[in-house]
Design a protein around this nucleic acid. Structure first.
Length: 365
DNA sequence: TATTCGTGGTA
DNA sequence: TTACCAAGAAT
């Protein structure tokens, strides 16, 4: 890791901010510095690309124009606003944060990163982003872009997958960040990271800061950032049960914690939870599922396997394979079932994950 | 500290 | 298909 002189730091700031003034992206959440707007955009942008976020952001602001609107919204509408974005706890935590603001902060945003970190769902990055952009506090906002950009500029060799590495970057950036325009500085780093200093195909030869880019000057740009690999997704087998009562579908709401919390699907049953041997026939599978419905939900299901290819869906850490079953439920009493019956027309009202879309698609094919 | 939280895109 | 990346936080 190299150190910059104060003259180099000043030179870098001027170069970066001049470029940002001319080439910075025009994005919906950059029209003003309202903390609510900055906050919503930053939460959406966590692990999510700008292009994906833009339409979600516009709709979110139309549905929930203020913190109060967000605090008062029914959860089903919240999840519908987030449907397809992933990491759904983000939006549930946003509502908790909105209520926290109204009850504990009299509706007034705290204006420092240290205080913002105390709010639910706001970690070190988001706190730095809001504090610098909305309140002009000169603090780093260390996201994936900052890790990548500064690891290359300064040849920082620490493994960014390790939590303790964050403070290495925060200390380095704290020395370099513009005291006058910290929000623009942080956003310029993000724009740099998504244009000239990308992960796979950087174009540093044309970058406005190429003369500051030590890794590029040394011809080893792609060696940065240093990051250990993550384990492969673990395979998990499910059955997805398309169960009907007359013309209505049996829809299940997932538990309020864990994956896809509170979202709606047809009943997904982990094959490992069924009383089955290592190898089993279709008949044994449907019998086990029917028995499971009786035992867990007090429902009488008559199902059969569908002759279609199983649906596969890969999450960050799990790879699901879902076999499709279809059937009827007779004399339903839903007292023991965590869900409800829904007509085909009303299915779209429920917030569902992408894997449910794939299941419907395969069912209809 | 390491794991758990989605989805879309690219090579 | 597989691997990896994209404005991370909670536990």
């Amino acid at each position: 890791m190299i150190e910059w002189s104060s003259a180099t730091i000043k030179d870098f700031q001027t170069t970066l901010l001049t470029w940002f003034d001319q080439e910075g992206r025009d994005l919906p959440w950059r029209r003003d510095h309202e903390p609510y707007h900055i906050w919503v955009s930053e939460i959406m942008l966590q692990q999510t690309q700008v292009q994906t976020v833009i339409p979600y952001y516009e709709r979110f602001m139309a549905w929930f124009p203020t913190v109060t609107d967000l605090a008062q919204a029914p959860e089903e509408k919240l999840l519908k606003a987030w449907e397809g974005l992933g990491y759904y706890s983000r939006v549930r935590n946003m509502q908790r944060c909105a209520r926290q603001l109204l009850t504990d902060y009299d509706g007034q945003w705290p204006q420092t990163a240290a205080e913002l970190t105390e709010l639910i769902g706001i970690g070190p990055y988001t706190a730095g982003a809001i504090a610098s952009i909305a309140f002009n506090e000169p603090v780093p906002a260390v996201d994936g872009n900052a890790f990548r950009v500064f690891s290359r500029l300064l040849e920082i060799d620490d493994d960014i997958a390790k939590p303790q590495t964050r403070q290495v970057f925060e200390r380095a950036i704290a020395k370099i960040i513009s005291q006058d325009r910290p929000g623009d500085f942080n956003q310029a780093i993000m724009d740099l990271g998504s244009s000239y200093m990308t992960a796979r195909q950087p174009d540093s030869a044309h970058s406005p800061v190429k003369r500051f880019n030590q890794a590029y000057l040394d011809g080893k740009e792609l060696a940065y950032p240093v990051k250990t690999k993550k384990p492969r997704p673990v395979p998990v087998d499910y059955v997805a049960v398309m169960a009907q009562v007359d013309d209505q579908w049996l829809m299940m709401q997932r538990p309020s914690n864990g994956m896809l919390a509170n979202l709606w699907t047809v009943p997904f049953i982990k094959v490992a939870d069924l009383a089955l041997d290592e190898s089993y026939t279709d008949a044994e599978l449907t019998a086990a599922v029917n028995a499971y419905f009786k035992q867990e939900y007090q429902l009488t299901l008559t199902s059969q396997c569908l002759p279609v290819k199983p649906v596969t869906h890969t999450f960050t850490h799990q790879k699901w394979t879902l076999r499709l079953l279809a059937g009827q439920v007779t004399t339903p009493d839903l007292a023991f079932f965590p869900g409800r019956l829904v007509t085909t027309d009303d299915l779209a009202q429920l917030p569902t994950p992408k894997v449910q879309d794939k299941v419907w698609q395969r069912y209809r094919q």
